[in-house]
Every structure is written in C-alpha cells, then in structure tokens.
Nucleic acid binder design. Structure first.
Lengths: 256, 256
DNA sequence: TCGTTTGTTGGGAATTGTACAATCCAGGTT
DNA sequence: AACCTGGATTGTACAATTCCCAACAAACGA
C-alpha cells in the first residue's frame, strides 16, 4: 500500500533504459515492465515532460534524458571532497602506477566519486557513480572500520575469497583499524586487489576513503602492504587539506 | 489525461531536492508540490525504494540518492566523445589559459559534457551536465550552424546582446559556417565571451562542439578571433582522432 | 516537563490511473 | 498493392491512488 505503482513503474522504465544504449520503444518497454503499452506511453510522456527521458522524433524511441546528467552531477558536486581530491588522486597514480579512487558511503554501499586511471594498458577501472558493496572492497572496509561500523545485513559472496561471515569481517576491520588501512584481496573481483585509507574532515569525522586498485599480478600482497604507506601519506595530506579549507580559496590543483 | 500525476509529483520532488543541498522533510516537500503530506510521504518512500532519494535515519529528511549519479554517469559515458576529448580540453587550456568545454546537442539545448578549468583565479566555469540554450552560446551556435539548423521556437533574451531575431541569428550562423567557428559575445552571460568549433565523427557527421570561454576583459573580441585558430586546430585534431578510433586502444591521454 | 512540529499510518469519498480493445500511422516486407 | 510490425492515441469499465480527516509516536524547543 505504501508503494505507488505509477511512480515505481516510471522509475523501472528509467532503470531499463539505462541498460539500453540505443533507446527503446514503448511497446518493448511495456513488455519489460509488464504493463500495457498505452500505460507505458503515458508514463514515458510524463517522464519526457520533465526531461528524464527523451523521445527521438524519428524513431520514436525513448532514451535517458539530459536532466539525469544534471541531477547526478549536482549530487557529485555536493561534496567538496571530490574537487579537492583530484590532484591527490593524480599524485597517487603517479607514485603507484595504479588506478586511484575516492569514495563515500551511500546508505549501505560505497559510492565511487571519482577516479584517475593509470596509464598502463592493463588496469582496473571502476566507473564514477558506481555503487559497490561495503564488505568486499577496500574502500568499503575503510568506511566500515573507521566510520559507522554497523555491518550490512547480508554479506553477499562475489568470489571465493569474499568474506561472508560477520565475525571474520569484524576481525578484518579490527586489523584495518590497527594498521590504518584496509585491503581487498580479490574479494570482489577476481584478480583485483585494492588498498585504501580513511579521509577525515573538518571536525575529524570520517568523510570518505581513498585508495588504489590494480591487477593481482602486479599488485601482489607484499606490494600492497608497501604501497599502503604511500596511500596513507597521500590520504593524510588530503585529510590535512580538508581539515582547514578556506571558503573562497580557488580550488586549483594544489601540489601534494 | 496524458500526464500521470503521481509520477510527475515524484519527479517534481526530485527537482526540488536538487536545489536543497541539506535535504528536505516530507512536510515542506508536500507544501512545495502542493499535495498532502501523507501523499508526499508515500511518494518519497517509493522513490527511496528505487534509490532515487535517500532518507536520513536521524533527521528523516530526504536527499537525492546515489542512483542518480549512476544514471547520469551512464548517460555521460554513452558518448565516447567525452573520454577522448579530455586531453584535448587540457591542451586547449594550456594554450589559451581559458576554460575549455565540450558539448553535444540534447533536444533543443546544449549539454555540457565535460570541462577543464583554467588556473587563473578569474575564470568562467560551467558545470558538467549543465544545459544551456542553443542560440546564445558559442557551442550552441556551432551545433546549429554545422548540424541540424532548425532554430528553436523561442529565442529567449538573457543579456542586451542576445540575438532574439531569427533572421539575424541565421546570418550569424551563416557567418560561422564561412569562418569555421562561432562566437558568443556576451550573449548569454554578462562579461563572458566564448568561441567554439564543430567536432565530426566517423562518418563526417557533426557529433558535438568544443570551445573555450573566459571573462570579457581578458577575452576581447580581437583575441577571440586570434584564439579561434587555436581552437580550430585542437578541434580538428580531436575530430581526426574521432574519425579513426580503434576499438580496444586504451584511451590514455594521447598527446595533441 | 509540556507543548509543538514532523513523519507515518489508517480510514471513507473523490479523483486518477490501468488494461483492454479499437483505430490510425509510418516503415519495411512480401 | 497488400501485409505486417512497432508505435501512438482514444474510450470505457474497473482498479488504484489521492485527498482530507484524524490518530499517534518520535523528535524538538523552550
């Protein structure tokens, strides 16, 4: 009773269109959502009015609309973290030759705010805006270990190494707190390892995490622990910067 | 009959939340949308289920949800233009010391896909994802002059210099075609000038526009025409790259 | 502490949305 | 030309939602 059908259907239409790069007609959309095409037509028209989808005047197919770019960007820009972090991400890439990310917590997931890719041809890339689970990524573990440490209900398995037992995870988090950094040893994707450290804001509260990730062959466990020092240093530098930021200081790429 | 109320209300709620960085409670939202707060509560709950908004468990206020970041990003990544253009934008900034943008057409507006900011403290910055009118921006005029040249119905005035007459605009577009570039001489924002050139894709069709913008004091009309050459060269280089791109070639920051 | 504001939930009555079928339209196929 | 498919639109019973009311718990302020 508390879920509004027509709204939910509109949102599902957006979800479906996200996967369909070439757009989709009303008839096919209606089949996917399992509603009548007349209903789908009205729903899509409403979405179009508000710019959430666009209809090609030729093919009459619907695609996601520019409004969504704006909304997403508005959300990303909301956190000053992102602007300030860029040069530090680049610094990390320069020092480690691996892909660098920052992320914040979004409810029970990790939201990747930004990334700078390594130049090596073999590299790991997680799209900006991607959501990932807290328990099986280095950035997520940092957010759990140093911030709100209530664990997600369900610890889903992604690889054989994913930690699915709450107590084991708590032990890992404890170790991360002691070490000052968290790692992900092929727990989310095969052959991908990561290491991440916390970022603190003005009042010393956790605001996010920064880390690097790379292919397992290059990023061995022993190298991970070496690089943890580099990541910590850069993370500390960024935290320092976040701690005393001047309101009107242009956030040009400061050196690390 | 063709607009679905509950959907439209949900979308309006998102619009309102975009402006409210700190989130908003159900009661205030209900007043803004002019519906009952019980209805608002149910609508917001539905939006929350799909991740379009998030409710703080402490303050119970709603804010935009991470889902929107993902959708927006998905849309941005849809065009390979954006990835490929970055190094060229940086090159433009390096050569001109002004802010550089790329944009594509989104229905009857210009959608800014990406930008690289100049390091000067006085600079012009248009947010990624911003939508601007076609007739009063350099990027928009390029899209009109070199692409689909059907003019928007209404030529809205933003500054005293905005071209609001269709015939005058057509003359300007004709001139842009002859020159190979379009300019915006304080037609959208006071004290902001821009110059832009077209970008062509694989089949020689217009795919977007690239340009620079800056404060009027620095970017005088005569300097604009000088810089047009620089912008053209970089735009041409990017077009060349877009024309023969190899599928699996890593798009690392190639030199211009 | 007591009032106040806020979010949620629950009821009828009024309004709106939905499915189904019918129709029209544009392109592509036979 | 006749046919088919996907899409958009419209009308009408029927299902769902919204409104306005009220009640209630929880958080907030004084």
């Amino acid at each position: 009773m508390s879920e509004i059908q027509s709204l939910a259907r509109g949102l599902r239409a957006l979800d479906i269109l996200e996967a369909e790069t070439d757009g989709m007609g009303v008839t096919r959309l209606a089949r996917r959502i399992d509603i009548d095409k007349s209903t789908a037509s009205r729903i899509m028209k409403t979405l179009a009015i508000y710019g959430y989808v666009e209809q090609s005047s030729e093919t009459r197919r619907y695609t996601l609309g520019p409004r969504l770019v704006r909304l997403g960007q508005s959300l990303l820009n909301r956190t000053p973290l992102r602007d300030q972090a860029r040069p530090y991400l680049r610094e990390l890439v320069a020092q480690t030759q691996e892909c660098a990310h920052i992320a914040v917590r979004a409810s029970d997931q990790v939201l990747y705010l930004d990334q700078v890719e390594a130049t090596a041809s073999l590299r790991v890339s997680t799209g900006v805006g991607t959501l990932a689970p807290l328990h099986s990524t280095a950035l997520g573990k940092v957010l759990l270990a140093f911030g709100d440490n209530r664990l997600p209900e369900l610890l889903e398995r992604f690889t054989p190494r994913t930690i699915t037992d709450a107590d084991t995870l708590r032990m890992h988090l404890e170790q991360a707190r002691r070490q000052g950094y968290a790692i992900d040893d092929e727990e989310f994707s095969y052959d991908v390892r990561c290491v991440a450290v916390p970022l603190y804001g003005l009042d010393g509260e956790l605001v996010g995490a920064i880390g690097i990730s790379g292919p397992g062959a290059r990023l061995t466990l022993s190298r991970i622990h070496d690089l943890a020092l580099v990541v910590s240093r850069v993370g500390q530098a960024l935290s320092d910067r976040l701690a005393y930021r001047h309101e009107d200081q242009p956030s040009d790429g400061g050196d690390v």
